[in-house]
Structures are given as C-alpha cells and as structure tokens.
Amino acid sequence: MRPMLATPGDLRTGPPAGPAWVHEIKWDGIRLLADAADSRLRLLTRSGRDIAVALPELHGLAQVCDDVLLDGEAVAMVAGRPSFSHVVDRVHTASAVAASRLARTRPVTYMVFDLLRLDGMDLTGLPWSARRAALEDLLEGVPGVQPSPVFDDGRQLLAATADQRLEGVVSKRRASPYRAGVRSTDWLKFPHRGRVSVVIGGWRPQTGTVGRLGAVHVGVPVDDGAGRPLRDDTGALRLDYRGRVGAGLAGRAGEQLQALLVGAPTAPYPFTADIPRPEAAGSTWLEPQVVIDVATLEVTSDGRLRQPSYQGVRTDLTPEDLLEQT
C-alpha cells in the first residue's frame, strides 16, 4: 500500500477553521508504514523499501496485536527539535549491530497518525475520527511510539510551530477516508519554508519532452579566500551546487523563466563539484547570471536545498551579491 498524501494549502489564508477539521504537527521526519503481522514487522518507506533493521527501537510494534498497519513518521529529536539529517542517517543504516548502537545514542520516535488495518480488517474506508479513536486505544505504552498530537485550532498551531521552528501543520477532514496513494484535498499541508537566493547554472528539460523546462540547477558563489567570488581561468564564476529546483515551474512561471534562460549564454559546467550523472543528464549549462529566489525547508549539512520551490527572478541582485549569504 502507498501512503495517502496531502495537498499544499494556501498559506495566505492558513489552515481551515471549524469543527469539520483537525490539525497535526508536520514532523520533520521520514514517512513510514508500519506493517506488523504474525510477530514480524516491516517498516516501509514511500518507495516500498523495508528499513526495519535500521530501527530496532521500534520492534515492539510487532507485539501490538496479531495484525496491524499504521501510518506515521520516524522522528529524531536533537535539543528538543526534530532533526531531518539525523533521522536520514538512521534509516540508511544497513548493519543490525550499528543500528542497535544508534538506537541507544540517537533514538527515533515513531509519531503515528493513522490506523489502516487491524486484525485483518481494512479500516481505510472509515472516517478519520473513527480510525483515530481506535489508534489511541491501541498504542498506549508501546516503547518509542506515540500518536501524533491533534489540535482543534489550526491557525494557532501554525503560529506555534513557526515560533518553535517546526516543519509546519497538516489539516485533515474528520470525516475523510484514507485514500492510499492519492494526493487529496481532504489533507492539506502548510509547511514553513525559508527563502534563499541562488544562481542558475543550468537547466534540464521536463521528462518526456523536448526543450520544455523541467528543472534548474542552482548554486551560490564561492569565496576565493579574499572575500571575492571564485572564478576560473576564463573569468567565469564558479558555484557551489545547491541542488535541482523543479517545484513551482509549472504554467506561466516556468514559461517566463524558460524564455529568460533561452537568451542566457551557454557555458562550460559551472559548479565546483561533479553532480550525479542522472541529475546532469540532458542538461544545458549556462553562464551564472540569473538569480532566483527559492523557498526551502532547510539547507542540509551537505549544502543541498531540501524540497526547494521556485518563487521568482531577482532582477535586483547579481550573482556576486550572493557571496554575503553563503
């Protein structure tokens, strides 16, 4: 089964109000389906990979009952806040011995927000409120596991999560069924994103098209050690790679940006480090001239933008101006 997905909500209006809706914290973790049957536990990522070996502290889920399927997020807390990089490190652990050690020093908590199957019964057609009531009764006292808290006032929760620098809010219709694999408007997500400026160093076409903008490769200038942007022997600006931005490029916004990029001079590869061949495939490299703003959840420890979304062109900035923000 694939998890149900939330549709982006409108941050200008905020989470919906009224008794038909309930609101949860959007945890900065890894989405997992926990499938326990016959005393065997599988922890399934969105791609379907079983990572149960990496999270032994959650193996108590196998003893909850004879058969259960849960939906939730594995969250790693650091200094009282979820750390995405820490939980990513955990789920990529393939050694049972290393996982056991990390479970003691860097444990995760499974924040559960839905109950999809119980003792062979498919519960996905029931309203959220009924599934939630059964979930709370089921998980009491399970180590490393807790139901994700729910709140009646979504706008107040959105403000509180912003103050606490949490990822955001998910709002859910109390009457909604669980629609596996569907991105539904019965669930609305309101993430808090920072905004950063980056330079476009290349672009690649949309998959299955010829010449239609699918994503842009972005980076930031590199300090040459003397407070100036690093350049190569030809004088071309060099960039530290920050990732690929595809979200936000649909429709007119993408068409306008593509028209701008078509007029930009092509150039040799502008980034200081190689990027994976699948990411580079089919790309056109450009002179680093165009500055854009992107919204992003965070900049990871290796300098990548997490879930970046295109916001617009910054005609008031030059690439050299960005040296101050790196």
Rank of each mutant, 00 (worst) to 15 (best):
Q307P: 00
V22G: 15
G303W: 04
G168I: 09
T284A: 13
V290D: 03
S283Y: 06
V220W: 00
T266P: 00
G125Y: 02
V75Q: 03
T315Y: 08
R2A: 12
V291T: 04
C65H: 07
R306C: 09
R2T: 08
A20R: 11
L58W: 05
V262A: 10
R104M: 15
Q289D: 07
Q307R: 04
S100P: 02
V313P: 01
L32F: 06
L43S: 11
R131Y: 07
D163M: 13
V170T: 08
G219V: 02
A259I: 02
V245N: 01
H23L: 10
R42A: 15
I51N: 09
E73R: 05
R242F: 08
S100N: 11
A236Y: 03
A133R: 15
H59T: 06
L32N: 08
Q325P: 02
R46S: 02
T93D: 13
T185R: 12
V199D: 11
T284W: 13
R46V: 01
G144N: 06
L249W: 04
P147N: 09
V112S: 05
P56T: 11
G72V: 04
A134I: 03
W203D: 05
A215H: 01
L118K: 07
A79V: 06
P229T: 05
T315L: 10
F271P: 02
V108N: 05
P278L: 08
A226C: 09
P8F: 09
H23I: 11
D224C: 02
D232F: 01
I292L: 14
V262L: 13
T209A: 05
G154I: 15
L44Q: 13
D114N: 12
L322Q: 11
L323E: 13
D233A: 07
A259N: 02
Q156N: 06
A273H: 12
R42K: 15
T124D: 03
L11A: 14
W21R: 10
E167N: 05
G263N: 13
A264M: 06
D224K: 06
G235P: 07
V88P: 01
L126G: 03
A295M: 03
A52H: 03
L135D: 11
V97M: 10
E57M: 04
D35Q: 13
R195L: 11
H217R: 02
R277M: 08
A130L: 15
A79H: 10
R81F: 09
A180D: 05
R183W: 12
L139K: 12
T93V: 14
Y241F: 15
I25L: 14
I25W: 13
A34S: 10
R104H: 14
V78L: 13
P319Y: 08
D186M: 04
D67Q: 13
R117V: 09
D35N: 13
S176C: 09
G263T: 07
Y110H: 06
H86V: 12
D122V: 04
I292P: 00
T124G: 02
L257K: 00
R304N: 08
A180E: 10
I292V: 15
K26Q: 07
T272A: 06
D122S: 06
G246M: 01
G246N: 00
G211N: 05
T124S: 11
G194I: 13
L239P: 03
S100K: 15
L58Q: 07
T300L: 03
L230A: 14
V218E: 01
A247H: 04
R195E: 15
T161A: 10
